[in-house]
Design a binder for these strands. Structure first.
Length: 318
DNA sequence: AAGCCGTGGTC
DNA sequence: TGACCAAGGCT
């Protein structure tokens, strides 16, 4: 492996993503924020719209801890998996101005599992530990020829593959290799420093084996925007789905909607179902909601689907 | 352990 | 354009 590592670092020096802002920073808080944002989210998305505005609003652990949950969710709006934002906020309050360094303490914080704990320890504190993410999993499966592998086996292989002599660079480089050479839908083996040792060079895309995906069910609903005296009714979601976000009233398709004006239809695809909703405007008061002007609504965190409904309302008034 | 949890980019 | 994918965690 020694020779392959050497090729690897040469490749990394030339082709690595050395300009990533969280890689240029030594502030554990900024690295921590990046790790949470990057969970199940592509680098490009985080970089384009979320990382810098969030840090401008909450430049330190203290400012984040002192913010309200609504403020934090507003800065997370559009990024998805909103539990991440609420857990990040909770963790900031738990930390009392200092983020812990050990994997054990990090894992104890809400929203930080083993993968994120290792990443923070490795990147923020330069702890010599292997990291694990979608890139590393894919590389390990191909390198060791694993069609499928459970978490336990993957971590074992991660320690095997790890270069303890250059832990920090190794971890950064391995993700870059997965992102630009050993990719999910293409493998550029001729550019890979590990190709001569890899079990999957003959058929890289066969590793790991793709899971059979179940067809996503469709849920049909009716979204009703209630207007009364120039204000609109919204309520803060208190169940697991989109928890903490504000939204308009929703009804099952079976409920009869009367005395309403149909504004249009929206479609929103989620990770486990597809929402197809008709959007209505109703001039009426309704209980158990709070009332906002359009200007006030702009300060609330809404889901993508509710934003689409709001856009239909805007169109109808032009 | 498998399902839930969002959204946008990509082809 | 629909399906896959992404620096995963939690229950």
């Amino acid at each position: 492996m020694k020779k392959a590592y050497k090729l690897f670092y040469k490749w990394y020096e030339k082709n690595g993503r050395h300009d990533l802002p969280w890689r240029l920073s030594s502030d554990p808080y900024r690295i921590w924020v990046s790790e949470i944002m990057l969970q199940q989210t592509q680098v490009k998305t985080v970089l384009a719209r979320f990382y810098f505005p969030f840090l401008k609003a909450f430049p330190s652990l203290e400012t984040l801890a002192n913010a309200s949950e609504d403020e934090v969710l507003k800065m997370w709006e559009g990024l998805g998996y909103y539990t991440r934002a609420r857990n990040l906020h909770k963790s900031a309050k738990l930390c009392a101005s200092v983020l812990p360094q050990s994997v054990h303490e990090l894992t104890a914080l809400p929203g930080i599992g083993r993968s994120t704990a290792h990443a923070i320890a490795a990147f923020a504190y330069k702890t010599p530990l292997p990291i694990m993410d979608a890139n590393v999993k894919r590389i390990l499966c191909r390198f060791y020829g694993l069609k499928k592998a459970g978490e336990k086996l993957l971590w074992e292989k991660a320690y095997d593959f790890f270069d303890a002599e250059h832990p920090y660079d190794f971890n950064q480089a391995i993700m870059d290799l997965g992102a630009s050479v050993c990719m999910a839908k293409a493998a550029l083996c001729h550019e890979c420093p590990f190709a001569s040792l890899c079990m999957a060079v003959d058929d890289p895309l066969a590793y790991p084996q793709k899971k059979v995906k179940k067809s996503t069910p469709v849920r049909r609903k009716q979204i009703v925007i209630h207007r009364h005296q120039g204000r609109f009714a919204l309520k803060q979601r208190d169940t697991r789905f989109l928890n903490g976000l504000w939204g308009f009233s929703e009804y099952e398709q079976s409920d009869a909607i009367t005395t309403t004006q149909k504004l249009g239809e929206i479609v929103q695809v989620y990770s486990h179902f597809r929402l197809e909703a008709e959007v209505y405007l109703r001039q009426a008061h309704i209980e158990e909601h709070e009332w906002f002007t359009l200007e006030e609504i702009n300060k609330l965190a809404l889901s993508r689907a509710d934003h689409k409904a709001l856009a239909l309302l805007d169109m109808s008034e032009k």
